[in-house]
Every structure is written in C-alpha cells, then in structure tokens.
Simulated assay, not measured.
Amino acid sequence: MSIINVNFSSSTISSLQQFHSINCNGRLVDLSSPKLMGILNLTPDSFSDGGKFNNEKSALQHAEKLLNEGAAIIDIGAQSTRPNATFLSSEQEIARIGKMISLIKKEFPEALISLDTFYAETVKFGFNEGIDIVNDISGGQFDEKMLDAVAESKLPYVLMHINNSYETMHEKVSFADITLSVNQYFSKKTDELLKKGIKDIILDPGFGFGKTVEDQMKMIDEIEFFDFGNFPLLIGISRKSFIYKPLGKSALDINEETQKLHMKVLKQGAKILRVHDVAEAKKTIDEFLNN
C-alpha cells in the first residue's frame, strides 16, 4: 500500500484516498471503490446473531450468502466482544474456529478472509489456514506478542481505537475532543506498526467501544479528518447500540438509519464497511458510486 506522508488540507483528502490498496498475501486489493466486509460470527453469544453460524454447515451457507450479496471480505470471529460476553483463551478460539477458514477458502477461493482476534497464537493459526487480513480490536494491547505475530505474517492489519485493556474496553471515557484523541492514538500506534514492518494498515475508529452516543455521532460527522487520509478507514457501525438505543429500537430494526450513516461516511472517504446486512449496504455503496 502506498503510504502518504505529506500533510494535505482536508479538501484534498477524498482525492488522495482513492489511491489506497492493500496487499493480501500477494493479492493487491484496490480500494478506489469501497468494499464490504461481511460478518461471520462463530460465537454462541454475540448480541444479534449468536449461535446461528457456529457449525460448519450453517457457517458455510452464511459465507456463501455474504459473498453472493456483495461482500469482498468475510470477517470471521470466534470471540464475542459485547459487554459481559464469555471470555475465551486463544486455545478456545482456535478450537471454535476449527477448519472454517480453510473450508471457506476451498469453497470460495475468491473470498478474502479477515480474522477477528486479539491473540498472537490465533493469528499464527489463521495464517496457516489461509487468512488474508488480521482484524484486531485491541490495537495490540491485549497480547504483547500480537504485533510481532502480525509483522511476521506480513498481512494487512486493522488497527482499532479502544481502551487499553479487555476489562475496560467498554468503560465510557469522557473525551475533550474525540477526533483529536483518536487521531493521537492512531498517530502513536501507526508509528509503532510501521517500525515493526507492518505497512498495510487499515484504521477503525472503534464505534461501540468505550464512547458515548454523542462522541460517536461526532465521529460520524468528522470521519474525513481521521488520520488525515494517510490510511484507509474501516467503519463498523452495524447493529451498534449508539444507533438503536436512542431511538428505542432493537439492533435488528435500524437498517434505514444505518444506511443513512453509511452514506455519510462513504461521502467522507470510508473504504470498508463492516456489516451484518450485506445486501442493504451494497445498495448504499451502489447509490454512492452512481451519484
């Protein structure tokens, strides 16, 4: 991926971001148009789809559905990170994942597989099974060996903004300026990643983790300013409580509101949308590209 090291005015950010691409195991993925990352939870306790896809047959069927609806990336996660979720060790994660990565790769070789984990050993396992991207909610903070494992894999890395421990990841923090705080975190962390040789970096502002509703809406309004266009942005707002709770709705009843927010971040240069409802998000991307 080409890293832009010069500071540019915000008015030029969108034109700069169109040149982003990521190298997934030697496969260059062009991000000049936004991509969809479909969520495949292999968990029994995720807040909106727990237990639905935690066997091989149902997981493969759901992977096929995500791809047919327009997902370029399938994000596989074995550990629920909702509040009060059951904590798994790396060994338990690996056992739960089983052969799902290699099975999906065999059935759908065109699919890119992202592995949602904060463990170094799970990354090593996933690499051997054929993953293309590491999606780490922890920013390398929950396992001291994580970033070295990613560097060794040479895979693209999703860096998310989050509190500094598993125990505190959902504690609401009072930020004087959420955009400034997240950018300070990104600046420090991307410098650390680059020094380790991790160059294909995707930034995730961390919606749903330790932030107030007000701060998250401010983040939506200011997406274009995150890291000033140096790295592509992944936005994960699908079924998040900061959208549905203020409306008095459920996680499954906010598609219209979510797509409006998706359009808002796409217009500000977001490159990857991490979603449960791929077909609806695909319509939003198509509308964005056609206008």
Rank of each mutant, 00 (worst) to 15 (best):
S2V: 11
N5C: 09
T12R: 12
T12I: 14
L16S: 02
L16A: 02
Q17R: 15
I22P: 12
R27Y: 13
R27C: 11
L28S: 13
N41M: 07
S46Y: 13
G50A: 03
N55V: 01
N55C: 14
A63H: 09
L67K: 08
L67T: 03
D75T: 08
A78Q: 05
T81Y: 06
N84G: 00
S90E: 12
S90Y: 13
I94G: 12
G98Q: 04
E107P: 00
S114Y: 13
L115R: 02
G130Q: 05
D132T: 01
N135V: 09
D136K: 02
G140D: 11
G140M: 10
E144W: 00
E152K: 14
K154S: 11
Y166L: 13
E167H: 09
E171A: 08
E171N: 12
V173M: 12
D191I: 11
I202M: 06
G206D: 08
G206A: 08
T212I: 05
E214C: 00
D215N: 13
F225V: 01
N230S: 15
F231H: 15
I235R: 08
S241T: 03
F242H: 09
K249N: 09
A251T: 01
A251N: 10
L252R: 14
I254F: 05
T258I: 03
L273K: 12
D277M: 06
D277S: 13
K282R: 15
K283L: 11
T284C: 15
F288V: 04
